[in-house]
Design a protein around this nucleic acid. Structure first.
Length: 546
RNA sequence: GGGCCGGUAGCUCAGUUAGGGAGAGCGUCUGGCUUUUAACCAGAUGGUCGGGGGUUCAACUCCCUCCCGGCCCGCCA
């Protein structure tokens, strides 16, 4: 592997921002616009946030190249001619709702093991196939990220004949193909033919090719058993002949075939590919497929809550779920960071990620002090993350937004945010609206994590609570005080005075208030909060009447 | 066993490319805001830069070695 195709070396430059290094390399490699940037996965099951690497790493490089004046196409291959090798424990409908295997016809899936995803019926019955279903799901997730991507179906590339020339070439040079691949895989023997045929009887892909007739454009096969993750998928034994469109190249050839047919200039990939398929792909591209491989780049995998992302273990979260608690630009930011670092994505501590993004933004607008490297990164990365660079934007700190989320009253949210200086007096209406939209997300975050911010005003029904006599008397007095009409600070002061007067420890007295209004031990600063609620309700609640 | 990537403060991370001051945010602590109540302000605290060795006037940075985590070196993708 030469320096140019080293998927680590591409990142090893003097740029503060990795994508600038990639863009340099792509500019050198490209033989003219449009530049094609590609990602891709198999539509094997529920898409999760790990797949966002394939979308967003591409997107960031694409945007940077557009900024440099290039025309860029971002494409994404759904490797939907791959075979169904195992049945996931959990599926998802088109809205992203997770569904257990028991709720679909699992037996039907089992009978289709070994077939291409696009030949397996959609267990939900809403799409043309299993492959189409999960590709559609992925497409929807991509849309939510605000990224415009051209989806390409691998099956379509075969069936339309776009792959036929390269398939023919690989089979024509199958001796060379075999020799090249053998340098990377032990299994390759003298009988190896780089093609899977689709059995006309049972529909499975089989690797046992008995004859190749390129003049006729056909291959002959015998449908034999296939290994899949330790299990064996039985072949039906059928012997037949089929054409070059009715089958599939092995992955190590298919990847270079995609580069050739789609004219790929850049492709990022996970570290699992870095030592295996990438080097062999480069070799095969040059010596079998006859195409110069694209610029490649490795990205590290990240963990979720400290554990590997795993569909089978249930440790996954979808893009849609994350975007319920995170603005898209913040989510994009996570994928704008250094690709080779092993990171954790933590829902529990998502506030830290948001804080980081807010800081990046503030550094970009020169609102906080920062060192050169941080400033340079902000200058390069930030504009790629947001739809529009607008200095007047307003950000409410995420945990504070969670505090505001305890009340449903939009006016109260805004008022408190203003009072605490998180919304400037001259903020434009759109900026206020967007800033407050974070409250909804932070509230959802508090709710799903059940964290320390997860308290909400118990308005409809009074929480159960019992108070001793002094506390009850003090609450009655406080009700009286509120009924007289005072502002927040006065109420706050009165709480302290009453606690002293009735000899109730002030902490306990506040606790009584939190119990009454939030059914919790803790809460926001009580005086100003109560002052903003409708007086009648507060008075009644303090009297424990409703 | 071999190869590759990562390991910097309690947490999340910059900085390492071309060797010279160890940093930020959060957390924690203290103080302020007339009055402790997770919001605001100020200050402080905090790290053997994974361990060890080497090169150098000088090492988080370069070299060697070891430890930890991940991936690859079967199939599949």
């Amino acid at each position: 592997m030469t320096e140019r195709t080293d998927p680590y070396a591409v990142l090893d430059t003097d740029h503060a921002f990795w994508a600038d290094a990639v863009a340099d390399a792509v500019e050198q490699h490209s033989d003219g616009d449009p530049i094609v940037i590609k990602g891709g996965v198999s539509p094997s099951g529920v898409p999760h946030i790990g797949h966002a690497n394939e979308i967003l790493r591409c997107y960031i490089v694409a945007e940077l190249l557009r900024e440099r004046g290039h025309e860029v196409r971002q494409v994404f291959t759904s490797d939907d001619r791959d075979r169904l090798r195992a049945i996931p424990r959990r599926l998802a409908d088109l809205d992203g709702n997770l569904v257990g295997l028991g709720e679909v016809d699992a037996g039907a899936l089992g009978r289709n093991l070994g077939k291409p995803y696009t030949d397996v019926p959609d267990p939900f019955g809403c799409c043309d196939s299993y492959g189409a279903h999960f590709t559609e799901l992925l497409r929807r997730e991509t849309e939510k990220l605000g990224v415009d991507v051209e989806f390409v179906s691998n099956t379509e590339l075969y069936e339309s004949g776009q792959f036929e020339d390269v398939t023919r070439r690989v089979l024509e040079h199958r001796e060379q193909a075999r020799a090249t691949l053998a340098e990377y895989q032990n299994k390759v023997d003298d009988d190896y033919v780089p093609f899977f045929a689709r059995c006309s009887d049972c529909g499975q892909l089989t690797e046992t090719i008995t004859d190749v007739d390129l003049d006729a454009g056909t291959v002959s096969y015998r449908c034999t058993d296939a290994e899949a993750g330790g299990d064996t998928i039985d072949g039906c034994g059928h012997e037949g002949t089929t054409d070059l469109r009715d089958g599939k190249l092995p992955w190590r050839f298919e990847w270079p075939a995609q580069w050739k047919v789609l004219g790929v200039d850049f492709e990022p990939f996970g570290k699992d590919h870095a030592e295996g398929s990438w080097p062999s792909g480069v070799d095969i591209a040059r010596n079998v497929v006859d195409v110069e491989p694209p610029v490649g780049m490795v990205y590290e995998w990240f963990t979720l809550e400290g554990e590997a992302l795993s569909s089978s273990e249930g440790n996954i979260v979808t893009v849609g779920e994350v975007l319920d608690i995170l603005e898209p630009e913040v989510f994009r930011y996570f994928f704008g960071k250094e690709p080779l670092k092993q990171r954790d994505f933590s829902i529990e501590r998502i506030d830290q990620l948001v804080d980081e993004f807010d800081r990046l933004e503030a550094v970009y607008f020169d609102e906080v002090a920062a060192e050169d490297s941080e400033r340079e990164l902000a200058e390069r990365l930030y504009p790629l993350l947001v739809d529009e660079v607008r200095e007047e934007r307003v950000r409410i700190p995420y945990t504070f937004a969670a505090v505001l989320g305890m009340t449903d009253d939009p006016e109260l949210r805004e008022e408190i945010a203003r009072r605490e200086g998180h919304i400037p007096d001259d903020a434009p209406e759109w900026a206020i609206e967007e800033a407050l939209s974070r409250v909804r997300r932070a509230r959802e975050w508090a709710r799903i994590t059940e964290n320390a911010f997860d308290y909400e005003l118990k308005r409809a029904e009074m929480p159960e609570a019992e108070f001793d006599d002094p506390t009850a008397a003090a609450l009655d007095d406080l009700a009286e005080f509120v009924a007289e009409g005072h502002d927040g600070e006065e109420i706050q002061a009165e709480i302290f005075d009453l606690a002293e007067e009735y000899d109730v420890p002030v902490g306990e007295f506040f606790g009584a208030g939190y119990r009454l209004f939030f059914d919790d031990d803790e809460g926001p600063k009580l005086g100003p909060f109560l002052a903003r609620l409708d007086q009648e309700f507060v008075v009644d609640r303090l009297r424990r009447e409703r």
